[in-house]
Design a protein around this nucleic acid. Structure first.
Lengths: 198, 198
DNA sequence: GATATATTTTACCAGTCGGTCAACTATTAG
DNA sequence: CTAATAGTTGACCGACTGGTAAAATATATC
């Protein structure tokens, strides 16, 4: 009953873009509403607060990263180290047409919000933890298949996440996406020469 | 002539702490003035704007990082890989008594401001570039001394900066400084097994 | 001690922020 | 057709933002 609307997904999409481009505090609700073509009054019909919005936007972006980075990179049958190179390269491709390099959505929010809002921090932590566990599974499978020597999968996986986030950060600082491609080679090395001692 | 004052350094110190803790947009000038015990009217006697302040605060923090991280880590005579471990460990020590892990000052500002303000971005870029060049010199010296095999010093140095920034980011997301110590081991590996092909 | 000046104080401004609310409208299910 | 309801609108709020200006005050120099 009642009328229908696609304002909510439009708000989520606009919020995703604007938070990515400018950060959380630098974007106002009015600006998000304008970008989405939604009245501010309507905004508060769908979301109870700006915080509520960012939590929902994070969920939406997790889905996107999963579909556009994780799955494409790690479902091919190339050697495992190449899969990680591909992971970095897909990030490069996603950013290299943009006017300026805006970093990783989750990394951006982490550094801006995780000291303010424990719920947001926890959510971002579990996203990075999910990535780490995913990387770990990929590494473990390669070890068991004999494609890699024994290694400390947990630490290596976490280092790969850190290297990825650090690369995205440097790409933003230098405003140069090619850093992502450049450091993908180091990710490859890191996989192939990881230590085994825990 | 006229009276003297230490309000300016107090403002810089307060800004350094608050920007680090809460980020740029989340801190108001009033809050910084309160923390420094300075009247807001006086603030604008020393700084022409909030942006002017953050630029000065960045310079002050560069000095601090140089004295408390770079010099201590890289002037000892332990093996070069150990020096990098020490670099991560010093960051761990600086953070491990704090109530919450607040990441790297420069990384935080990079992700929050470098799409807004080209001057700030350029400043942060040159800081990371300085670190990279410093790391590169350390690596090159070790190669020439025969302590390390030939390697792509530029890429390895940049990867170490990225790994460091990524580690600080994860430490903030997990609110767990021990990640810095944990990933310092990967930095060691990265130095010892860096690739040589440019 | 006079005085030029570096610093401080206070009150103020316009604009924007996140958020609220009550009236209004379109629509869908019965 | 109707009625219940999902969604929209626009005006409004208090709090706070970065920033301004002029008067007051303390002090270093001579």
């Amino acid at each position: 009953m009642g009328r229908t609307s696609d304002a909510k997904p439009r708000l989520l999409a606009a919020a995703g873009e604007l938070f990515q481009d400018k950060g959380y505090h630098a974007v106002g609700i009015q600006e998000i509403c304008d970008a989405a073509g939604v009245n501010k009054g309507s905004f508060y019909y769908f979301f109870s607060s700006k915080r509520d919005l960012v939590l929902a936007a994070i969920d939406a972006q997790v889905e996107m990263y999963q579909q556009e980075l994780m799955q494409p990179a790690f479902s091919s049958d190339v050697p495992v180290a190449e899969q990680f190179r591909q992971f970095f390269h897909l990030m490069y491709l996603a950013r290299h047409n943009l006017a300026s390099c805006t970093g990783c959505f989750f990394g951006n929010l982490t550094l801006e919000l995780s000291t303010h809002d424990e719920l947001v921090r926890g959510k971002l932590q579990s996203i990075f933890e999910g990535w780490t566990l995913g990387f770990e599974r990929v590494l473990q499978a390669a070890v068991e298949a004999g494609a890699l020597p024994k290694l400390d999968t947990r630490r290596t996986a976490q280092a790969l996440v850190a290297l990825f986030e650090g690369s995205a950060l440097l790409a933003k600082a230098y405003n140069d996406v090619s850093i992502l491609d450049d450091l993908s080679q180091v990710a490859v090395n890191l996989v192939e020469h990881a230590s085994s001692s825990p």
